[in-house]
Amino acid sequence: MFNQLSFQRVLPAPLKLEGRKPMRYMVWLLVVALIILRQDLWLWDNGTLVFGFMPITLLWQAGISIGAAIVWFLATIFAWPTDLIEEAEKQAEGGE
């Protein structure tokens, strides 16, 4: 089931283009930015409630979690090792 799936056919055409290496650096930069932004020292003593019930620090952490999911999605597209994709395609064709 899994080994019959070709990742190259799943990805949209613009993502198949060469030049993924600069985006790998961008993904790493975003990871470092998330690590720095995760330390919300500027909101630690803020007791503001958002929507009347949610502390602003909890909303900040929810935003960080959504940002981490987006960065992980980008990492799987741009920073995933291409040799794993080629190996999976070989196995799908029946080769070893």
Score class of each variant (00 low, 15 high):
residue 3 N to F: 11
residue 3 N to V: 13
residue 4 Q to D: 10
residue 4 Q to I: 09
residue 5 L to G: 02
residue 9 R to T: 15
residue 10 V to A: 13
residue 10 V to K: 07
residue 11 L to M: 14
residue 12 P to Y: 01
residue 13 A to G: 06
residue 16 K to N: 11
residue 18 E to P: 02
residue 21 K to M: 11
residue 24 R to K: 03
residue 26 M to F: 07
residue 27 V to A: 01
residue 27 V to R: 02
residue 27 V to L: 01
residue 28 W to Q: 14
residue 28 W to V: 12
residue 29 L to M: 07
residue 30 L to Y: 00
residue 31 V to C: 04
residue 33 A to E: 06
residue 34 L to I: 06
residue 34 L to R: 03
residue 35 I to P: 00
residue 35 I to G: 08
residue 38 R to F: 08
residue 38 R to V: 01
residue 39 Q to H: 13
residue 39 Q to N: 07
residue 41 L to M: 14
residue 42 W to K: 07
residue 44 W to G: 12
residue 44 W to Q: 15
residue 44 W to V: 15
residue 44 W to C: 10
residue 45 D to I: 06
residue 45 D to P: 02
residue 47 G to P: 04
residue 47 G to V: 08
residue 48 T to N: 05
residue 49 L to A: 01
residue 50 V to S: 07
residue 51 F to K: 05
residue 51 F to P: 01
residue 52 G to A: 05
residue 53 F to R: 14
residue 53 F to T: 07
residue 55 P to Q: 03
residue 55 P to A: 04
residue 57 T to V: 07
residue 57 T to H: 05
residue 58 L to P: 14
residue 59 L to G: 00
residue 59 L to M: 07
residue 60 W to H: 10
residue 60 W to A: 02
residue 61 Q to D: 05
residue 62 A to S: 14
residue 63 G to C: 06
residue 64 I to L: 01
residue 65 S to E: 08
residue 66 I to P: 02
residue 67 G to S: 11
residue 70 I to N: 02
residue 71 V to F: 00
residue 71 V to W: 00
residue 71 V to S: 04
residue 72 W to Y: 15
residue 73 F to R: 03
residue 74 L to W: 08
residue 75 A to Q: 11
residue 75 A to M: 11
residue 75 A to N: 13
residue 76 T to N: 13
residue 78 F to C: 08
residue 78 F to G: 05
residue 79 A to I: 03
residue 79 A to C: 15
residue 79 A to H: 11
residue 79 A to R: 05
residue 80 W to N: 09
residue 81 P to Q: 09
residue 81 P to A: 10
residue 84 L to R: 13
residue 84 L to Q: 13
residue 85 I to D: 15
residue 89 E to A: 13
residue 89 E to M: 12
residue 89 E to W: 14
residue 91 Q to R: 15
residue 92 A to G: 13
residue 93 E to S: 10
residue 94 G to D: 04
residue 94 G to C: 03
